[in-house]
């Protein structure tokens, strides 16, 4: 089932183009949103999450049009959103805060709501801190609390903007488990810089760069973009798009390999670098020509 259908989305901040002709489709499952800093990922997530109206294009979320008040309300009733920089009331306890968000999600039956709040707090591993004031929580705990607030009410569309920031490795693994479970039944849009999260969680991936969609496909297809363009050697290659020394002592390169190079299997990161690096290089060449 198509959960989100975006066609030609555009947004400008004054003279700056944040998004231009963004078209993509989200279905049940986890879709990763990748892109360099400033690519427009957060802007796009905010538009899909109804926090920001687009200047142009059409957006349908479960068939609803968020540009109209009734459509927006309908979307919000189906939505869980974890912003990049979530906010809290520091004097609330963890339970009170999620309970408050649950009320704002129209969960009005007290007992049911409390059960639901307890469920999501347990799901994010904050069971034992439910009575703690938010000001006493660590950064990672606050991030998990924000995730709980996003998940309360069992939304059909979950939008997560860099949710693993501040999580330790164990919490990140548990987070993957949680999102993977969720992705079996719901539509999850996950913005992240962690390519391993994308590889392990996402069925689909969208790459955004300078406000435009550069790629839409599976993680394997994204990795495939670098097929034949990743090689290793003993020394650094000046002509490569990217070149770094790995733990084995060999240098790994992405770019146009020299003849006879020892090609290796590309990763999603290589595909991403090939895509974004080539675009950046093309842009730099175009800029130089001007």
């Amino acid at each position: 089932m198509t959960a989100v259908q975006a066609t030609g989305l555009a947004l400008r901040y004054g003279r700056t183009t944040a998004l231009e002709d963004v078209t993509f489709t989200l279905r049940t499952g986890v879709t990763g949103l990748l892109g360099p800093n400033g690519a427009g990922k957060t802007t796009l997530l905010r538009i899909v999450a109804t926090a920001l109206p687009a200047d142009g294009g059409t957006l349908r979320v479960f068939g609803h049009d968020p540009s109209t008040p009734p459509g927006r309300l309908a979307v919000r009733r189906l939505l869980g959103y974890l912003p990049q920089d979530p906010g809290f009331h520091p004097s609330f306890t963890a339970f009170e805060f999620v309970d408050y968000v649950a009320i704002l999600k129209e969960l009005t039956h007290r007992a049911t709501r409390h059960t639901e709040v307890a469920r999501v707090l347990s799901a994010v591993g904050l069971d034992d801190r439910r009575r703690s004031r938010i000001r006493t929580l660590s950064g990672g705990m606050k991030q998990r609390l924000a995730l709980a607030a996003a998940l309360v009410g069992d939304p059909d569309l979950v939008i997560l903007d860099e949710p693993t920031v501040g999580l330790d490795p164990e919490q990140r693994l548990r987070f993957r488990e949680l999102i993977a479970d969720l992705g079996e039944r719901k539509t999850v849009l996950l913005s992240t810089h962690q390519t391993e999260d994308v590889m392990s969680l996402c069925q689909e991936v969208v790459v955004l760069d300078r406000g435009r969609v550069r790629f839409e496909g599976t993680p394997t297809e994204l990795a495939g973009l670098a097929a034949g363009r990743v090689w290793t050697s003993a020394a650094r290659e000046a002509g490569a798009l990217a070149s770094w020394r790995t733990g084995t002592g060999l240098h790994r390169h992405v770019g146009d390999p020299p003849s006879g190079a020892a090609l290796v299997e590309p990763s999603i990161e290589d595909g991403y670098l090939t895509l974004v690096g080539a675009a950046a290089e093309a842009s730099a060449i175009a800029g130089g020509a001007r």
Partner: peptide, 20 residues
């Protein structure tokens, strides 16, 4: 963190119905 339980533990879990 643990996985989420099945949906719809209660009738109102998702707050899905348009409220009157």
């Amino acid at each position: 963190m643990s996985g989420l339980p099945a949906v719809g533990a209660s009738g109102q879990a998702a707050g899905r119905l348009v409220p009157g």
